[in-house]
Design a protein around this nucleic acid. Sequence first.
DNA 1: CGGAATCCCATAAGATACTG
DNA 2: CAGTATCTTATGGGATTCCG
Lengths: 121, 121
Amino acid sequence: MLDTAGCPDCKRINDVLSRVGDRWSVLVVISLARDGTLRFNELKKNLGISQRMLSLTLKELERDGLVHRTYHPTIPPKVEYTLTEMGQSFREPVSALGYWALENLTKIDAARQAYDKSVAK
Amino acid sequence: MLDTAGCPDCKRINDVLSRVGDRWSVLVVISLARDGTLRFNELKKNLGISQRMLSLTLKELERDGLVHRTYHPTIPPKVEYTLTEMGQSFREPVSALGYWALENLTKIDAARQAYDKSVAK
DNA sequence: CGGAATCCCATAAGATACTG
DNA sequence: CAGTATCTTATGGGATTCCG
């Protein structure tokens, strides 16, 4: 695995990032945090995620205890997803990341343009 | 913000996360936040990252305006990396994520074991 | 020392088709 | 509707080599 001997904090950060740090997990948690309860296809539609990746992501989040899955054996079937208590608590740090992303997107774009311009010639 | 109807911001959040959300970028920022200034091979040694990935990651971070690069044209050459102001601000949401991780990793492990146990037979 | 350039492989992830 | 199975392509990332 990864050698993080020189950065003990990196070990911990790396642990959590490898579990719930991928962008689909983050976006699913954000969506559920805001809407409370969502069905499979509602998430799919909202996030623009492929069916396969949503299925895999939700299964992982459920396994990690962040998301609760409720299956209604009706016809047609209906499956609802909500955040667990731990999932709710995850909302805070994730929201912090989300807000930072929104606040700095334009600055990043500006930095990129400046960089590309200075490198161009 | 994040509480608007639909999930229009998910696209933009996704944009930013796909830029600075990868594991190597996060680990580089954490290292620089802790040590202040680091040379190329110091980062390489600390993170256990390959030369290629470190080079690519640093170039991207510099382009995004998160990392500042100082080249000393000595023999042998010496290159130092530090965080920009925006890079420093990125550390806050990442640290929040780290703290959450520290508090919840054992719970996640427990949830996983319970899940795997309930699924197996 | 600090990269850049190749090569190569493992995995991620989209598209598609099928099912209860 | 909510998945699963399969195929295929795209990407990540290590190892190696070479250069100013």
